[in-house]
Design a protein around this nucleic acid. Structure first.
Length: 708
DNA sequence: TGCAAATGCTTTTTT
DNA sequence: AGCATTTGCA
């Protein structure tokens, strides 16, 4: 559909129209939740390229996730009826592109490695031991955090104690020696590049005709600096955000950046989007009341366009088991009676561990679901291990990589071997230009030790065949030669299958990536794949069930029905934030949670909950009392609680019986992945099972299913 | 060196 | 509770 100018603008309200058409100077769009922010961004870019003569290639749009960037491009394409090749990416991906081109100016090779959390932590551990610091006093997680804050300029280097300063410096020195950048370095080095090489800065400054930054409330000072370099003089910036939704201060984001926009950019214009099209009057009113308790804001009040709608449901559960039962029951009802599609429903929680119990219940009830975020695919141990094997020759100085290759499965190579390897490699490196050659020579020299000999024979062939073999074959080769699968099976007998499937998925991802992109060499393909996965907010699968995620992960999303669960002091607001005095940010997070709901909002909490393995008495979240009572309807399950108690006893009795009895034909069983099934036949330790969800018969080992 | 048992840590959010 | 790492024993 190709629109005329008038048709394009007709779809917007007055505020939105103003924001779309304003190009006279720096613009801040304060876009309240559900006020059509995405619409404004896409229309603005479409308008600029179609009617104002902007070159799409010279428009930079910074988004919060890569997924958002892709969606933006997609939407603009739909609007214009053709592709507009704008430069849309996250800060990190943007910097990656720049650095791949110019980082040699800073003394790095363009094949630098991006260190993720675990790489960085490993390196910090090394730093600690090298400086003879007490590792209990300076845990790597704490230092990683501190270092990150320094790099994001949310903490001043001068304020650190000497030990930490020293550790920080050594950490950076080692990163450089290893030709590696951590996440924060991507931004930092880009700034360094701009400061050192004025020509490069000028090029990009002139190149971009317009810069759009989404989620501006969650930018950190380093990112802000980058933006200023690109736009301060020309004032060609549009920042879009909502200070009510600033929820990333733990990552160094500074809410003052959005609050000071008018001071920072001369002649800045501020446009507020105050009409909320998403939520019912009731839901929005609750959100408005909650946020009123925060002190420092741009004053604005969202106005609901929708009708009053239904009251907010509140459920008080005696324990988490019953809370989850309530969830399941409510979801079934919504789905069956009200015909609400499951992908219009979301369960949101403060922290990831809360998903487990919910997940178990959903599996048991055969309700399809998708977990968003959580333990990311590329952080799983088996994935990191395999990737370590694959990338070892290309990044032979990464200690995390070395350790994984040496240790899983054990080859008799321990800490001493790591040091020896590194030492030898660094010697060879001086004489042999070629990384691969130095790498092989190192293994060869050390192969008097059995473990090294094995590695030498693996990598000699691996490197010979790397360019010509498919990733699938390479991984299979490595799996075979390292006996990794045997190790997995032995170490993780109860979820070996899942882990193996993950490896298959990795093979898939690699093959797909290499099909999709056209790099000159396999090595380049592989290295680009590695860079991508560390910055990508991974895999978005087709969503055909209810969504489970943290409130953070729900930022920017909306659902017809939202369940906000485990609303208890210590969980939401989290214990840590209470200790750190971060209540306002927690409240904003709660506000984000509420405003995800379009039509119906459920709030629930438990009076008792297992926490750190202990049953704890819980107090309802203080935020609940900030919602006016007249907006809330308290749900009571008459006698249901008692009934559940009885069920529980009954079930316990059954469980004991089950565990004593053997599996037999006709029994119903539960499988972690395949859900509920019925046993058709028993052969020793194997069961033939018909799985309801799959409509398929599978043969499964006894250990992988539970009786229900 | 391999292994069960014991200990101990986790749970805030993530590009 | 669930997982990973360390300990202690053979």
């Amino acid at each position: 559909m190709i629109l005329t100018k008038n048709e394009l603008l007709k779809n917007l309200n007055e505020e939105q129209k103003e924001a779309v058409c304003y190009f006279k100077g720096p613009l801040l769009v304060l876009a309240g939740a559900g006020s059509g922010k995405t619409r404004v961004i896409t229309y603005k870019i479409a308008y600029a390229t179609k009617y104002l003569g902007y070159n799409p290639e010279r428009i930079l749009a910074i988004t919060f996730t890569n997924k958002a960037a892709n969606e933006l491009k997609e939407r603009i394409k739909n609007l214009l009826g053709k592709e507009a090749p704008i430069w849309a990416s996250t800060f990190h991906s943007f910097c990656l592109k720049i650095l791949r081109r110019h980082i040699d100016k800073l003394g790095y090779s363009r094949y630098f490695e991006i260190y993720d959390e675990s790489d960085s932590k490993k390196l910090i551990e090394k730093v600690i031991s090298e400086l003879n610091l007490d590792k209990d006093k300076y845990p790597s997680s704490l230092l990683k955090n501190l270092f990150s804050k320094i790099k994001n300029e949310s903490l001043a280097y001068e304020e650190l104690e000497d030990n930490i300063k020293e550790a920080f410096n050594l950490y950076n020195k080692l990163l450089k020696e290893k030709n590696a950048l951590d996440f924060d370095d991507l931004l930092l080095k880009t700034i360094e590049l701009f400061e050192k090489e004025k020509g490069i800065l000028n090029f990009y400054k002139n190149y971009f005709e317009y810069v759009l930054v989404d989620e501006y409330q969650d930018t950190n000072p380093t990112q802000y600096k980058l933006i200023k370099y690109l736009c301060l003089e020309k004032g060609n910036i549009c920042a879009v955000g909502d200070d009510y939704q600033a929820i990333y201060s733990f990552r160094g984001a500074d809410i003052n950046i959005i609050l000071n926009f008018e001071k920072d950019f001369k002649n800045a214009k501020v446009i507020k989007l105050t009409k909320n099209y998403r939520s019912t009057k009731t839901i929005l009113e609750a959100a408005n009341y909650v946020i009123l308790n925060n002190k420092k804001n741009y004053q604005k009040k969202l106005e609901a366009i929708k009708e009053e709608g239904e009251k907010i449901r509140l459920f008080k559960a005696p324990n988490s088991e019953i809370e989850v039962k309530f969830l399941v029951k409510a979801i079934k009802k919504l789905s069956q009676d009200k015909k609400i599609p499951l992908n219009d429903i979301a369960i949101l929680y403060r922290s990831n561990f809360l998903s487990r119990e919910i997940e178990e219940a959903l599996i048991k009830e055969n309700i399809p679901y998708t977990i968003v975020g959580g333990l990311r695919f590329y952080e799983r141990k088996e994935i990191k291990d395999i990737l370590a094997y694959l990338k070892f020759p290309f990044f032979p100085k990464n200690e995390d990589t070395i350790e994984r290759v040496f240790k899983y499965p054990s080859k008799g190579l321990g800490k001493a071997a790591i040091l020896k390897f590194l030492h030898t490699y660094e010697q060879k490196e001086k004489f042999l230009e070629d990384t691969k050659e130095a790498f092989l020579e190192t293994l060869k020299e050390l192969s008097t030790k059995k473990g090294f000999k094995v590695l030498y024979s693996i990598y000699k062939r691996y490197l010979e065949e790397f360019e010509n073999k498919s990733f699938k074959d390479l991984i299979n080769f490595v799996l075979e030669e390292s006996k990794y699968l045997e190790y997995l099976q032995k170490e993780y007998p109860n979820n070996y299958e899942d882990r193996y499937e993950n490896i298959l998925e990795l093979i898939n991802a690699l093959e797909e990536f290499s099909k999709k992109h056209n790099f000159n060499t396999k090595k380049e393909t592989f290295l680009e794949f590695l860079a991508n996965i560390s910055l990508e907010n991974d895999k978005e699968k087709e969503n055909n069930g209810i969504s489970l995620m943290t409130v953070h992960a729900a930022k920017g999303l909306e659902f017809k029905v939202v369940f906000l669960v485990a609303l208890e002091d210590g969980i939401f607001p989290s214990k840590k934030s209470l200790e750190e005095g971060n209540l306002e940010e927690e409240r904003r997070l709660f506000y984000v949670g509420i405003t995800r709901a379009k039509d119906l909002l459920f709030l629930s909490y438990s009076q008792n909950r297992m926490y750190f393995g202990k049953l704890q008495r819980q107090v309802p979240s203080r935020f609940l009392s900030e919602i006016p009572k007249n907006l809330i309807f308290e749900v009571k399950l008459q006698n249901k609680a008692k009934e559940s108690e009885n069920n529980k006893k009954h079930q316990n009795v059954c469980n004991i019986k089950n565990s004593l009895s053997n599996f037999k034909k006709g029994d119903l069983v539960l499988h972690k992945k395949f859900g509920v099934g019925k046993i058709l036949n028993v052969f020793g330790d194997n069961l033939k099972i018909y799985f309801v969800k799959l409509k398929e018969v599978k043969e499964i080992k006894k250990d992988f299913v539970k009786k229900i």
